[in-house]
Design a binder for these strands. Structure first.
Length: 736
DNA sequence: AGCACGCCGACT
DNA sequence: GTCGGCGTGCTC
């Protein structure tokens, strides 16, 4: 007699879990972490079992009567280990997001819909059953002994070894000396990318002491979070590698988060070079994987076949069961924050997971986020620092160029042009950072001043000349360019402003002999294009690389001696309290790209605000000074890390309805004493994807005050008609 | 998110 | 008189 029922988090925006009776078939397989197909209203949906609960004894029959039964059990074994499930539950509560949707975000795509779960690929594997038989053919003997030595052997291996082994295998099977069966196989994302094993280098004193501190944290089996503060080129990766070696030696697994792994193939290669020869398997999880590859990787991790997982933000939910350490590389990076839906912060979740699993967490950065810096000051993070560059290479010289007085050509100051010229003559490489993709940010009619705007969003359309299209960078809208101005009929439509595409084209005119390449989201959209660009750069086949902030992250181009930053002011003038922090770290990161070889690097920063203290700190490579300037400003305004924020974004198609709802919600929230309610105010992007957007910013000096307010959020629904929606952004990274 | 129920406009 | 618009509400 069944006495249990299942609590199921359906992968839909439901406010709570639902209870179901166990199915007649496969009922014994139902356990926390198993996916199930359940009836929901008049349809079916996928859900994850979060608990099995006994019926209350007194009226079991009545309760059972009320529940529907699970339709089918979808997994053989739990896809989510129990502790991971608990972790995701905590995360969903913290971010006030329905558990079902949080699970949907955590699970690999394809597992959350009823159809479309990627196929599990099978391969034939051969095993020897009887090696005593005397075989006549030499090929038969060779193949059999190969199978005996390496079994189980799959067909690909045999094909590599022998030309057309298939008929022989068939014969051997008939003779009963081998047998063949089907086995699940994983799609290997590393196919064809071999790496050669490396030798762990000798660490310098600072690195040794960092590894020592971190490894000490391992022994205790405690939650020990570290802030690894190491300037660019100081060898942080080597500290990760050595610490992880210690984790593996203790038979535990490591999880490494990077801002966007597709951007850092070099890092993955270093991990493979260090650990693969030792029989460790490295798994990668990132947006570049196909749904099938992702699914395979997830299963491989669940089955404990992988010891190191390297991945982007969502890898913080990787189903490792023997986790021994979490590393968050470039912890200051904005891309750890998911900007929509389940708006979690990967770095913060790494800390939470580390705490729940009682393992050390290492946050590494050259320019730690002010949040982490403050935590370190308060003793919540232990600082380990790497104050010098490997091999005592000097930091590059950074100079500001005052664009108010500069002679400008193609958006480049004379000084920068001369510097580029010099590198070309010397055969050295240059990087130019321009954080704006496309040819130009808009097309303008010279006669009447009209520009082309997105019909769905509140912005101008970016002109992409190569693609021959005007594109909205916020929604999917695309339109062809027009010869004549739609407003005045004039023919004087011209591109205004400078994007990477245009910069690359104009530079080519200015330096016809130079080999110029462009790296941005557009030029790296094709699979492998990114890697190819990096390879060309490393092979010295590129003289000048033009790119968006993509070029600032993770790459290690040895021969670059000049970095030019074209629009330092863009990030600085961003309407956001974190603008200064972002600018500083971006400048520091890009500057760190220069002069990693033997020649000292030079960084030229074009700006209209040369007196800005942020730029001043970047020039002197003075992180501490920057922090000392910025922290008091944050404190004064009770912004993070001194206060806590939640951004409520009210949106909908009907402008008055949105504005009305926001006003009523804000009025209702005003009553709280310990939370400051700012707004409602229109979002900087007032209209986005056809929706009007208004925000209410909540600010408090304690998390508890905000938590208290957010606990009431289910009741706010009464204010909202179904046409107006509310997004809750806990710890927002930006407020666009 | 789906999906159905329900209450107001332009059609045979 | 209906067909169907989408606003509203529920899903064990």
């Amino acid at each position: 007699m069944e006495t249990y029922y299942a609590e199921v988090a359906v992968l839909a925006p439901l406010p709570r879990t639902l209870s179901y009776r166990l199915p007649d078939k496969d009922g014994e397989r139902v356990a926390p972490g198993i996916r199930v197909k359940v009836p929901l209203g008049r349809r079916s949906a996928v859900g994850v079992v979060v608990a099995l609960k006994p019926f209350a004894v007194d009226d079991e029959a009545v309760q059972r009567e009320r529940l529907k039964a699970i339709d089918a059990v979808l997994d053989e074994m739990p896809l989510l280990p129990e502790r991971l499930l608990e972790f995701i539950e905590r995360a969903s509560r913290y971010y006030v997001h329905p558990l079902g949707l949080a699970l949907k975000t955590a699970l690999p795509a394809g597992l959350s819909s009823l159809k479309g779960a990627p196929k599990i690929r099978q391969t034939r594997v051969y095993r020897a059953t009887d090696s005593s038989v005397n075989l006549r053919g030499t090929l038969q003997q060779q193949i059999l002994s190969f199978i005996v030595q390496h079994q189980p052997v799959d067909l690909t291996q045999l094909r590599d070894q022998f030309t057309s082994p298939y008929p022989v295998l068939k014969r051997l099977e008939e003779l009963g000396v081998i047998c063949c069966d089907e086995q699940e196989s994983l799609r290997d994302p590393f196919v064809g990318c071999q790496v050669t094993a490396d030798q762990p280098p000798t660490l310098n004193e600072a690195q040794q002491s960092a590894v020592h501190s971190i490894a000490e944290g391992l022994d205790g089996g405690d939650f020990k979070p570290f802030l690894l503060h190491g300037i660019t080129g100081s060898g942080k990766t080597e500290v990760y590698l050595h610490s992880i070696a210690a984790v593996l030696a203790a038979d535990k697994q490591a999880l490494v988060l990077v801002p966007e792994i597709a951007l850092t193939p070099q890092l993955v290669a270093r991990f493979r070079a260090r650990f693969e020869q030792q029989g460790q398997r490295i798994g990668v999880l990132h947006s570049g994987l196909s749904a099938a590859e992702r699914y395979d990787m997830w299963r491989a991790i669940v089955r404990d076949e992988v010891t190191i997982v390297i991945g982007a933000r969502s890898a913080v939910f990787a189903p490792l069961t023997r986790l021994g350490m979490i590393v968050v590389d470039e912890e200051h990076d904005d891309s750890y924050k998911q900007g929509e839906g389940f708006r979690y912060q990967g770095r913060d979740m790494a800390l939470l997971r580390g705490q729940m699993e009682q393992v050390p967490v290492v946050l590494g950065s050259a320019t730690p986020s002010l949040t982490s810096y403050r935590r370190m000051q308060q003793g919540a993070l232990s600082e380990v620092s790497l104050p010098t560059r490997i091999g005592d290479r000097t930091l590059p010289e950074v100079r500001l160029i005052d664009m108010r007085e500069a002679e400008v050509e193609h958006g480049l100051s004379q000084e920068l042009i001369e510097a580029l010229q010099l590198r070309l003559e010397r055969g050295e490489q240059s990087l130019l950072l321009l954080n704006r993709r496309g040819f130009s940010p808009y097309l303008l009619c010279r006669d009447c001043g009209a520009s082309f705007r997105c019909p769905n969003c509140d912005i101008t359309l970016t002109w992409h000349r190569q693609a021959g299209a005007l594109r909205c960078h916020y929604c999917d809208y695309v339109e062809p360019p027009q010869e004549l101005c739609p407003r005045c009929g004039g023919a004087a439509i011209e591109p205004e402003g400078m994007g990477t595409e245009r910069l690359a084209a104009e530079l080519q005119e200015r330096f016809p002999e130079a080999r110029i390449a462009r790296m941005d989201r557009d030029s790296t959209a094709a699979k492998g294009a990114q890697q190819q660009l990096v390879s060309r750069m490393e092979a010295g086949e590129v003289d000048i690389l033009v790119g968006t902030q993509m070029i600032a992250k993770g790459h290690d181009f040895g021969a670059v001696t000049l970095v030019g930053i074209l629009d330092a002011d863009a990030a600085l003038n961003f309407p956001d309290f974190r603008a200064a922090e972002r600018s500083f770290s971006l400048l520091a990161q890009v500057a760190g790209r220069a002069g990693r070889g033997d020649v000292r690097g030079e960084v030229l920063v074009q700006t209209y605000a040369p007196d800005s203290p942020v730029l001043e700190c970047a020039v002197t490579h003075d992180y501490k000074h920057f922090v000392e300037l910025e922290l008091p400003m944050r404190q004064l305004l009770v912004y993070p890390p001194y206060g806590y924020l939640v951004n409520l974004v009210v949106s909908g198609l009907d402008r008055p309805a949105v504005e009305g709802c926001a006003r009523r919600l804000a009025e209702r929230l005003m009553a709280a004493q310990d939370v400051e309610v700012l707004g409602p105010a229109p979002c900087p992007l007032f209209r986005l994807r056809n929706r009007y957007r208004v925000q209410i910013l909540l600010k408090a000096s304690t998390r508890a005050a905000l938590r208290h307010m957010l606990n009431e959020s289910p009741q706010w629904r009464s204010i909202f008609p179904a046409t107006v929606s509310l997004a809750i952004d806990v710890d927002p990274a930006d407020m666009m």
